[in-house]
Structures are given as C-alpha cells and as structure tokens.
C-alpha cells in the first residue's frame, strides 16, 4: 500500500516538474522537485528505499536526454543514500536539521551530475560551479524548504 502512495507522490512531482516548474525558471535554472521526493523517501524510510527511488526516478528523468543516459539515476541514487543517512530514525527533527539534510542531498546530486556532465567540455570548473552547481543547489534548497512548510507532515512526516 505504501509503495502505491510513493508511486502517486512521484507521479504528482513529475507532473509538476514538467508543467509548472519550467514557468519558474531563472536563467535556465530549475529546482528539482523529484529530488525533493527522494529526500522525503530518505528521511521517512531510510537509505535503501531512497536509493531505489532515486535510481528509478533518475532513469525516467534521463529518458528524454540525448546523452549520458543513467547520469541522473547515478546522482539521485547517491543523493538518496545521503538523505537516508539522516533519516528520522537516526536524527531528531528540527528546522536546521531539515535544512542541512536538504542542502547535503541537493549538493551531492548537483555535484555528481554537473561534474560528470561538464567533465569533457570546454567549461572551466569555476564556471560550472558558479553557473550550474550553486544555482541548482540554492534553488532546490529554497523549494525544499517551501515544500517542507506546505507538504502534509513536512518532509519528516509523523514519526
């Protein structure tokens, strides 16, 4: 039963990611709602479900790209591990902890994805950090905090 709840959650997040989120773009930078879904899974159920969810969601997200199929799944699986590492079984909830978990997960995802994606390009490391890694990270953290405020039970749910 729980698995259907999470399939529904990722369905809704995919829908929002592809319809509403493009309208919120700033200089081609978009927050990653599916990553927020992975964070919710990690915090509430630990690393294993979050890694599996991240890997699957990454494969779905990568389906429409022209290159590096599997990169999002790699980044999101690692992000799921980080989110699950700070699950509610191990860490007590407060706002700063939530902020820290979202930040660590978003940074892991962004660093792995952008580093591999731009590895062989003519873009310098500093430029990739300033132009892509940091903006993606900041925007996803901001949206994560907003979701924490409006999502039923917040990112942590009822323990």
């Amino acid at each position: 039963m729980r698995i259907f709840k999470y399939i529904l959650m990722f369905g809704i997040l995919t829908l929002l990611q592809t319809t509403l989120i493009p309208l919120l773009s700033v200089q081609d930078i978009y927050p990653d709602l599916l990553l927020i879904g992975v964070i919710i899974t990690g915090i509430r159920h630990g690393s294993t479900p979050a890694i599996l969810a991240g890997c699957l969601v990454g494969f779905v997200q990568d389906a429409a790209v022209t290159q590096l199929y599997g990169l999002s799944s790699l980044a999101k699986a690692a992000a799921g591990f980080v989110a699950g590492y700070f699950s509610r079984e191990k860490v007590k909830y407060n706002f700063l902890v939530t902020l820290g978990v979202v930040a660590a997960t978003a940074l892991t995802n962004s660093i792995i994805y952008q580093t591999i994606y731009y590895f062989n390009s003519n873009a310098g490391a500093g430029w990739v950090i300033v132009r892509y890694i940091l903006p993606h990270f900041v925007y996803t953290v901001v949206v994560g905090i907003i979701v924490n405020a409006i999502w039923p039970g917040g990112l942590w749910g009822k323990s």
């Binding site: 989120i21 773009s25 081609d28 978009y30 990653d32 429409a64 790209v65 022209t66 999002s72 994606y117």
Partner: peptide, 10 residues
C-alpha cells in the same frame, strides 16, 4: 517534452 530539468539540450 522539453528536457529542462538540468540541461535544455533536447
């Protein structure tokens, strides 16, 4: 679909 999540190239 537009691939706009991270890199708008396809």
């Amino acid at each position: 679909t537009k691939q706009r999540d991270q890199t708008p190239v396809s």
